[in-house]
């Protein structure tokens, strides 16, 4: 309960910070909407020239992209503080985090949610529900499984961000790793099936961005076997477990050298 209260406080502080400069908030908000909108427009235009891509219809391709944005934006909203972790380590400010009676990993992950993404997320959720309702017509079981898969994707995202934090403690470098993760996830604006092997296998089972972004959409379409659903959850749990192990290992390596 205390953890939850502190996260709410972090969120309130972050929201106040965003609202302190409304024009900048609106500028970034508008830019993000334009970015998503232009790619959606491209997908719609593409299907003026072709009937399907790898057997996927226009509506399914739109859903893949919307679900990619749904998961990606939620992860960015929640874990934005990871992007500010390096200065904390380099300056020695992480000492203050460690001395407080609050979990340093929760502080480092959830310390500054990005509320510009929150506004964008609401629009993405509304659009996803509209497209799913109008064109996909999933069953209740598919919807429940889809939501479970989304939570699983966020667990994998959390695992990756924890890994980045751990590496940050050991190497003092975070920025490029996070950006490479962002670029890897951006590959999933299209379904992982479109990549040829071995890239497809790497993106599914080594760096499980395929499980994170493509599989939830496929569950919603009823195109994913139950075996792969189980494999996805195993990956989710395992990646979180291993990243936490690595986090504890990296904490033991922390030398507070900059303070």
């Amino acid at each position: 309960m205390k953890t939850f209260r502190v996260i709410v406080r972090f969120s309130a502080n972050s929201l106040q910070q965003v609202l302190s400069n409304v024009p900048v908030f609106l500028l970034f908000f508008f830019s993000k909407l334009v970015r998503y909108g232009l790619f959606l427009l491209f997908l719609i235009l593409l299907f003026n020239g072709v009937t399907s891509v790898m057997g996927y219809s226009r509506e399914q391709m739109l859903m893949f992209y919307l679900i990619y944005n749904l998961i990606d934006t939620t992860a960015q909203l929640m874990f934005r503080e990871v992007y500010r972790f390096r200065p904390l380590i380099v300056s020695g400010g992480f000492d203050a985090v460690l001395t407080k009676p609050f979990s340093p990993i929760i502080r480092s992950l959830f310390g500054g949610p990005d509320f510009i993404d929150f506004g964008v997320l609401l629009i993405i959720v509304a659009t996803t529900i509209y497209v799913a309702n109008t064109y996909i017509h999933p069953s209740w079981l598919q919807i429940i499984l889809f939501l479970a898969m989304i939570i699983n994707s966020l667990l994998i995202a959390a695992a990756f961000h924890i890994l980045v934090l751990g590496i940050g403690i050991i190497t003092f470098s975070v920025d490029h790793l996070v950006m490479i993760f962002r670029d890897l996830t951006a590959l999933m604006r299209i379904p992982v099936d479109m990549f040829t092997n071995p890239i497809r296998s790497i993106l599914t089972f080594v760096i499980p961005v395929g499980i994170m972004f493509t599989y939830p959409a496929k569950v919603l379409f009823g195109l994913l076997s139950w075996q792969l659903v189980v494999v996805s959850f195993v990956f989710g749990g395992l990646s979180l477990y291993l990243s936490l192990k690595f986090w504890h290992y990296s904490l033991r390596q922390y030398q507070s050298a900059s303070s």
């Binding site: 790898m54 890897l184 951006a186 299209i190 479109m194 040829t196 890239i199």
Partner: peptide, 14 residues
């Protein structure tokens, strides 16, 4: 290079 891969495989599939 990563950025190009998505475009390449999208058009390859098309």
């Amino acid at each position: 290079v990563l950025r190009i891969l998505m475009t390449y495989f999208l058009w390859h599939s098309v």
